[in-house]
Design a protein around this nucleic acid. Structure first.
Lengths: 328, 328
DNA sequence: CTGAAAGCGCTAACAA
DNA sequence: TTGTTAGCGCTTTCAG
């Protein structure tokens, strides 16, 4: 491609080479409007030959779209070390790149998500928003300006399509496994109370325990390993005969493991431990962590895709798979 | 701000409200060109009052800039689960967001980085590139079109400013610690041979061993935990009296730890283990991993900042800090 | 120092 | 189906 050496070939060059007007070229190249097959062929071949690549900025400006997909992350404070966020970004970025859109992250304070959301809605550079760790507060604060170009990884609403892992199914699989392998005094370290999607697993846990006629043993956590560590300590203090601990996520479960190790409690001999997410390090702990998969990247990609397509996507739930290792 | 309800306020609105021409408004708002103090004040106050926010797309189109910062990642294949990449993205995204630029990721195949790089250079939507896991091959393939808007996290060149952690210093700190705590039969699991920045630590290791009159024990790895696991096995097979293993990164060191555990080798009693990066899970392993910090996010942010500023940044090295835990 | 005018590259009515 | 005509919102010569 010798012409690629020269500067930017525009749609005018293509139109000229194909012997049609700029509009016609635009129609066939952008796929909008109708055009004759012959014109279409000529334009396409000219574009191919010249190595034409549409300028995403010009296109976006003309269409009134943005070129930035923003990940709106709720939380008490920005948590940049969250590896869940890294995966989500990567999934979103992959889907957005072909369209020439990049991704950025915007923290949404738990108690005041309105202002940042409003700003995103007015920013002409923003193509759409993918919510993460979504709360009802955020759902209520979604400005009309974002309608049709917003999706949520987590809970959704009438106006915000939801894409999420089957939290309930995953929790059920893990807890059932614990139960079916003979555990009866099962405890759980939960996620932050403000996070809706961390409530499902707790409900499932409660209902399983209840239908088995067992009392529940719940301790609050916040998705961190530290909370798992302290949670395990508290559990063993309050209910010394506990024989299994379910961590709401792998980080928490890993924290549980480290606490039990400190206490010289045998895992899974005395206490079984299970988590959720199947992060890479779940396979490396001692003992290796039993958990359930969480296809974050795939989910994030789907959410971003829905926003890009502006297609009225319906809520989608992704399956989780139990991963049996040594800890339970 | 009642006017924020209405649609996009443009620079024309501001100019009108300030009683100046659009050009003048543009000059003061974009900081380019000169303008009288009085005009400046009027424009600024009008902009403030109307809640004016420049449209990043229009600005970029007019200036001939892009709105996407791409992370060019070298590797044998796209590794989306790399948590190093997540941190880098997050650092770059934070710096780019205020400018209205988003980030995306482009894999650069080891043997053929030229085509993707050329494509990036010609893509009018691309603001600049931040290289990661940079190789000499990539450095050589940087198209002129990218000059002045590219930086590297890792090795650099005359045309590509480098931002990196002080790999040599970090390795020296870790190895010295091993030596000073009495270890003499120290082995190392390295990173992939194609990665320049993973060579420094190896050189440091070799030179330390040599000046101590000790033979080196090197086994190749690839930054994965799996390679650490196998590396440790091989080390103990070849040199059964090894009393310390330095993993090129924490993931690898964690793999080493899991292998030693399987072998029932006492750590740090029989063998000390140390890594590099200080990832969150380094504190959770059993025993907790001794390592050295690696401010990836900060480095990535600096690299992105340099690209945005188009400022001729000189190579910058970031210090690493030794983190003593239980494994060594 | 300031304003008028000409684009940046593309899309989208509107007629023909 | 096609071409013509206006923009999208901002920057930037170029005169004054």
């Amino acid at each position: 491609m010798p012409e690629s050496v020269r500067a930017a070939v525009t749609i005018d060059d293509v139109a000229l080479a194909a012997g049609v007007s700029r509009s016609t070229a635009s129609r066939v190249l952008s796929g909008a409007g109708s055009s004759s097959t012959s014109a279409g062929a000529r334009v396409r071949s000219a574009a191919e030959r010249l190595g034409y690549v549409p300028n995403p900025l010009a296109r976006a400006l003309a269409r009134g779209e943005g070129t930035r997909m923003v990940l709106g992350v709720s939380g008490v404070s920005p948590d940049v070390h969250d590896l869940y966020l890294g995966l989500a970004m990567s999934g979103v970025a992959e889907v957005c790149a072909p369209e020439g859109v990049g991704v950025s992250v915007q923290w949404l304070p738990l108690e005041a998500p309105d202002a940042p959301l409003a700003r995103l809605a007015e920013d002409r550079g923003v193509r759409g928003v993918v919510l993460i760790n979504t709360t009802e507060r955020v759902l209520d604060a979604v400005p009309v300006g974002l309608r049709g170009r917003i999706a949520s990884i987590g809970v959704g609403s009438a106006a915000v399509p939801s894409f999420d892992v089957d939290n309930g199914g995953a929790a059920l699989a893990v807890i059932s496994h614990l139960y079916l392998t003979g555990r009866r005094r099962i405890a759980m370290v939960t996620g932050p109370a403000w996070l809706p999607c961390s409530r499902r697993p707790v409900e499932v846990y409660k209902s399983v325990m209840q239908s088995a006629g067992l009392p529940d043993r719940i301790v609050p956590g916040d998705f961190t390993a530290a909370s798992g560590h302290e949670g395990a300590l508290e559990i063993l203090r309050r209910w010394p005969d506990t024989d299994a601990i379910f961590g709401i996520c792998d980080a928490t479960a890993l924290g549980v493991l480290s606490a039990l190790r400190g206490l010289r409690v045998d895992v899974p001999g005395d206490v079984a431990v299970a988590g959720f997410d199947d992060i890479p390090f779940a396979a490396l702990s001692a003992p290796a962590l039993t958990t359930a998969t969480h296809p974050v990247r795939q989910i994030a990609a789907a959410a971003a895709g829905a926003v890009l397509d502006r297609t009225a996507a319906r809520p989608t739930s992704y399956p989780s798979r139990l991963v049996l290792r040594e800890s339970a």
